[in-house]
Design a protein around this nucleic acid. Structure first.
Length: 502
RNA sequence: GGCGACGUAGCCAAGUGGUCUAAGGCAGAGGUCUGCAAAAUCUCCAUUCGGCGGUUCAAAUCCGCCCGUCGCCUCCA
């Protein structure tokens, strides 16, 4: 244990599953209390969908937990705005250029557009913006430098495609993903390139592609970087040769991360990443998301159906990051109801001026630090809400836990009104319902109960429930009501369509 | 074809050898309260973990077989 690690003793012990070992391990960064995280970002040639959101929510919960435990986190996320092909061939068409052709724009315009969409999407989901956002096209120099280093170390060779990494020179190549290189049929899906020494060899720098729009000068001629080199180059640029945690989707294990390890460790001669954190996939209605099934939902779809972005987060928190999750609109509906109820409960809480309740926070910490057991951790919130303790302490305890959940519970009131606005509720709707509730209250005082009940029915027809509290009647929107469909003017007298009248 | 994961209440989903007569959320049922409702509150809601065998003093948890679902092996979070 290093001196720095010793100095950091006493903080929350975090146990994480490491893809490298396939085991849950005690987390100990290279240089506590600092932690460097590299998160594989998106290739910005299309809209981010709910599956992406799940993956980035998971890595966000991880970084929040590390901060909760007192670590100083630096998270780097790349933006892949060049270099990915439409097929597993280095000579294929660049996805960005394909998108550009499709939309009649330049690749740079495409990248900018989808990048903006991506970052506004994750911001709405309360996913912390990484300290460093690094674009591949802005780090060409670093990538060339790394390829050069590999060339100097003797790990590369040249073909007509460009500079190729020789995977046979890295003995541990198959270890990380536990690949059965022999068992894999070469060329089963990808045409064999007979200039390649090994089927797994991959391009570091691609030349001889005159039609490619994005090109840069290099020692090997004009060209552009291969698919994997950007992550290694940028991770090392911002986090050093050795990275504490690398996050990404589970799909990246066999190719992308395997190649990243190979090229990084061959360049530096040191272990590249200490902990690999991979999120499982999100399926839709029990099936993989795909364009052909038309089930690639975006945050815009989620909102259009009347669900708040954080309902998605709540849904993901209710599952285990390492297990496939099934997305259904029904599940999102129940998540939204649960979250709205939680926001409602928190909105009633006073300012968090009490002491954090030890029993609950311990349960929370033991769950969340055990490889991110978010569902058990979330169950603790229910326990706090049910307990009899002073409300100031309940608020303190819940908001403390929310530092990791990121459900913005401290702003529940605002979140709730945002949610109802999303559902189409307008202030005038509520004002009308409130004035009707006042009339009902007068009728009740006069014991005119039939009139009072009639008015209540009207209020219900407008989409509101009346709650009779000691402070007088309170109007709350009904969950199942479609306010958006109620755009037409409503009679302030009876709540029915103005034209019909009362 | 090869590899892997999963199958827990109406739905989503934890739990991986005894504390499980199985968390939590959603949905649902009943009591109290209320003029009646709603809210609140209390209580209930899988004797059972896909099926069948086996190991064990003890299994949802380990092993075997079977059935079912899904994923990866190719760019994908």
């Amino acid at each position: 244990m290093t001196q720095q690690e010793k100095n950091f003793e006493g903080s929350l012990k975090i146990r994480l599953y490491n893809t490298k070992s396939r085991e849950v391990e005690l987390f100990q960064p290279y240089f506590a209390p600092r932690v460097g995280i590299y998160s594989c970002g998106m290739t910005v040639y299309g809209y981010a969908h709910v599956g992406h959101i799940r993956t980035y929510t998971n890595s966000d919960v991880l970084r929040r937990l590390l901060e909760y435990a007192g670590y100083q986190v630096t998270q780097v996320m790349n933006v892949t705005d060049v270099g990915h092909m439409t097929s597993d061939e280095d000579a294929g068409e660049d996805k960005l250029e394909l998108g550009a052709r499709r939309e009649g724009k330049t690749p740079w315009e495409i990248a900018e557009f989808y990048e903006d969409h991506f970052f506004s999407t994750i911001a709405e989901c309360n996913i912390t913006r990484p300290e460093v956002i690094s674009r591949a096209t802005e780090h060409i120099g670093e990538q060339i430098g790394l390829v050069k280093r590999l060339e100097d170390n003797g790990y590369t060779y040249k073909t007509d495609v460009g500079v190729i990494f020789d995977t046979s020179k890295f003995g541990r190549y198959a270890e990380f993903a536990r690949l059965d290189l022999e068992g894999q049929e070469a060329g089963a899906r990808v045409a064999v390139d007979d200039q390649r020494r090994n089927p797994q060899d991959f391009a570091l720098w691609i030349t001889n592609q005159p039609n490619h729009i994005m090109q840069w000068n290099s020692p090997w001629g004009r060209g552009f970087p291969g698919w994997h080199i950007e992550c290694s180059a940028m991770a090392m640029r911002y986090l050093g040769d050795q990275v504490d945690i690398h996050t990404g989707g589970i799909d990246h294990i066999p190719v992308h991360h395997t190649n990243e390890i190979a090229q990084s460790e061959c360049a530096t001669g040191r272990q590249y990443v200490k902990y690999w954190f991979h999120s499982a996939f999100l399926n839709v209605d029990g099936r993989k998301m795909s364009k052909s099934l038309n089930n690639l939902y975006t945050l815009d779809d989620v909102r259009a159906r009347g669900y708040s972005p954080l309902a998605l987060r709540y849904l993901f928190l209710n599952g285990f990051y390492r297990r496939d999750m099934n997305f259904t609109w029904e599940a999102l509906e129940s998540a939204q109801r649960g979250l709205a109820r939680l926001w409602g409960a928190c909105a009633e809480l006073p300012a968090p001026t009490g002491v954090v309740i030890p029993g609950f926070i311990e349960k929370f910490e033991s769950a969340i630090s055990n490889d991110l057991n978010t569902m058990n951790a979330l169950a603790v919130v229910s326990g706090v809400l049910e307990t009899k303790g002073p409300p100031e302490s309940k608020a303190s305890t819940i908001y403390k836990m929310d530092e990791v959940f990121g459900l913005d519970l401290a702003n529940s009131r605002t979140r709730l009104s945002d949610f109802w606005r999303l559902r189409g509720l307008r202030p005038e709707h509520k004002m009308q319902a409130e004035s009707m509730a006042d009339k009902r209250e007068k009728a009740r005082k006069n014991k005119n109960f039939s009139e009072a009940d009639r008015l209540r029915d009207r209020i219900n027809n407008m989409g509101f429930q009346v709650e009779d509290t000691p402070q007088g009647p309170k109007i709350v929107p009904m969950f199942d009501f479609d306010f958006a469909a109620m755009r037409k003017p409503v009679c302030g007298h009876c709540g029915v369509d103005e034209k019909t009248g009362c």
